[in-house]
Design a protein around this nucleic acid. Structure first.
Length: 249
RNA sequence: UAACAUGCAAACAU
């Protein structure tokens, strides 16, 4: 079953999801039974090609599978589909599924919460965000690196930089180290509102922490500098990139 | 006493 799950994932990564589904169907011929991991892998594959509808059907099948079959949906099953719904912009459906999940006694974890936190914060629905944070606290689920980065992204994209900076500070107070994605998110936010002096400070802080900017970070900077008409600075970024051996795209 | 599979975060162009 582990071997088959691995194969299913491989096919899904190549977007050969129909073949992956066939493989799952044929597992019994080899004396193997798909379990929750196998099914979750296939569901992720379906979601990755935008077939959320079928993913949901699979979830329903799993829900009605018999007890102890190792096919009952778990936190991964739900989180995968909730993520897909969020990426489709269907936050209402995502939220409904989250409700269903908790109602059936499955504990959401930081992954699950992160998807909803990101979705609602991008929408600017910060009262929903507060409710979720509250619920996390209640369950004793701590915010992880991704959760903070999502919140920072949400605040930045709603031009609420002070709150974004607060989150950035808070995560460090809790002992979490911002990663390159976190820095890039904040830098992008600062660039877009043209707070270029803060941008420079943050870059300095970033390298001090031993985090290297990547192509995404640099693209955010170039884009920001161009928007502000700072051609010289933009070109300096390009020089820095070539110095560091990052090829331009 | 050992091995193995599933979900979450950032930028940009015509």
């Amino acid at each position: 079953t582990v071997i088959f799950s691995t194969l299913v994932k491989g096919l899904c990564l190549e977007k050969r999801v129909a073949e992956a589904a066939q493989m799952v169907d044929r597992m019994p011929q080899w004396g193997c039974t798909p379990n929750v991991v196998t099914r979750n892998t296939l569901i992720k594959g379906l979601c990755s090609i935008g077939n959320t509808a079928v993913a949901l059907e699979f979830l329903r099948e799993m829900t009605s599978s018999k007890e102890g079959s190792d096919c009952k949906p778990d936190v991964v099953t739900y989180s995968t589909i909730i993520d897909a719904l969020y990426k489709e912009g269907a936050m209402a459906k995502a939220s409904k599924l989250f409700q269903e999940m908790t109602d059936s006694g499955i504990q959401p974890d930081a992954f699950t919460y992160n998807v909803l936190l990101h979705g609602y914060s991008l929408e600017g629905n910060f009262s929903k965000v507060a409710t979720l944070l509250d619920s996390m606290q209640h369950r004793g689920t701590r915010l992880n690196l991704q959760c903070y980065t999502s919140l920072i992204d949400g605040y930045c994209k709603n031009q609420r930089m002070d709150e974004a900076m607060n989150m950035f500070k808070q995560m460090q107070d809790e002992g979490l180290k911002p990663g390159v994605v976190t820095y890039s998110t904040l830098l992008d936010g600062l660039c877009k509102i043209e707070r270029l002096e803060d941008v420079q400070n943050l870059i300095d802080q970033m390298v001090l922490q031993g985090i290297s900017p990547n192509i995404v970070t640099y693209t955010a900077l170039v884009s920001g500098f161009c928007k502000s008409g700072k051609w010289k600075e933009a070109m300096e970024v390009l020089d820095k990139m070539t110095d560091r051996g990052i090829s331009l795209n």
